[in-house]
């Protein structure tokens, strides 16, 4: 991509800029240099707002059975309802407005993705930094567990957990957290190991600052940039994984459908040519994930510690 091509010359330019530029400002400026990433960020912001304020915007509450009319089932995009409402994206087999269904599905998908990524980040980072700081056997044991888990594909681990625990939103979130903490832990440990050797940690330690304060007040802020990159990418992975699990019938329950479940519902009608029930939720899913990946990709380039060296 063009971002890669110009990164070398960009870093040369950096030398000429006044030193007053803070690292955060530099990152923001470099991030803004990629129109693709910026548009990803814009799309992501709009979709997040849509997910948060969805219930106030949607034409119909798709899970209020009073508002549904079975006469309206499987209508094509643009069709009129019995009551005169237009279904811009058609309706599903229950006569739900697809547009409303998608916005609700977006809420579930984004919610599950963000919550699981954040909690996993919290747990994983703590464990990773602790491992780096503790060293010795503790570190070794933690790293072995991480390696073991990372050698199995996430979908299998999640599948296994859900097979034992059964479906449900909380169970899905739990499964995602268990699957993802290790990635954060490994990264956090790696960064923390590098940072630990630097002088400011030694200085803090020689001042007899309590251990936990050194860990979280001094080490954590320095580990943040690469972790933010991972968290961004992980939100996308969580959403995909949740959608896949739900599609397989092992994820969220039918009462709180995510985009994956919507796609799964429409799947059986697709072969008979009623494409919209599956297609539109799928496009929404793809748009979120592409947007997240575009942002994550650029963030990685901007934060990449190798370039700062």
């Amino acid at each position: 991509m063009s971002a890669h091509a110009s990164s070398a010359s960009r870093s040369e330019q950096d030398e000429k800029l006044p030193i007053t530029e803070t690292p955060v400002r530099r990152m923001v400026r470099e991030f803004m240099a990629s129109p693709l990433a910026v548009s990803g960020l814009v799309v992501l912001s709009v979709l997040s707002l849509l997910a948060i304020f969805g219930p106030f915007i949607v034409p119909q509450n798709p899970y209020d059975l009073m508002q549904l009319d079975i006469m309206d089932s499987q209508l094509e995009p643009g069709a009129q309802s019995v009551a005169g409402m237009t279904y811009w994206l058609g309706t599903d087999d229950q006569g739900r407005d697809m547009l409303s269904g998608i916005i609700y599905g977006l809420r579930t998908s984004l919610g599950v993705g963000v919550i699981s990524a954040l909690v996993a980040a919290l747990i994983g980072t703590s464990i990773g930094i602790y491992a780096a700081y503790a060293g010795g056997r503790t570190e070794n044991l933690i790293m072995r567990v991480i390696d073991l888990q990372l050698s199995f594909p996430t979908i299998l681990v999640a599948l296994m957990i859900l097979a034992f625990m059964g479906r449900g939103v909380m169970n899905v979130i739990l499964a995602l957290i268990i699957v993802e903490w290790s990635t954060y832990a490994r990264t956090a440990r790696g960064v923390a190991l590098v940072e630990r050797r630097k002088e400011y940690i030694e200085a803090a330690e020689s001042l007899v600052i309590p251990r936990w304060r050194v860990l979280f007040k001094h080490l954590l802020p320095n580990c943040l940039p690469p972790l933010i990159v991972i968290a961004t990418v992980q939100v996308g992975r969580s959403i995909t994984l949740e959608a896949t699990l739900s599609f397989l019938g092992l994820g969220v329950p039918i009462t709180e459908p995510s985009l994956g479940l919507l796609i799964s519902n429409g799947y059986q009608y697709m072969l008979s040519g009623k494409y919209w029930i599956s297609l539109y939720p799928g496009i929404m899913l793809l748009v979120i994930i592409v947007a997240i990946n575009l942002v994550g990709d650029q963030l990685r380039d901007v934060v990449n510690p190798r370039r700062q060296a």
Partner: peptide, 18 residues
């Protein structure tokens, strides 16, 4: 390739079938 990374497997399968 970003698209290839992003598209969920199951949805890709559906689109290919369609």
């Amino acid at each position: 390739s970003i698209l290839g990374f992003s598209v969920p497997l199951f949805w890709l399968a559906l689109i290919l079938i369609m």
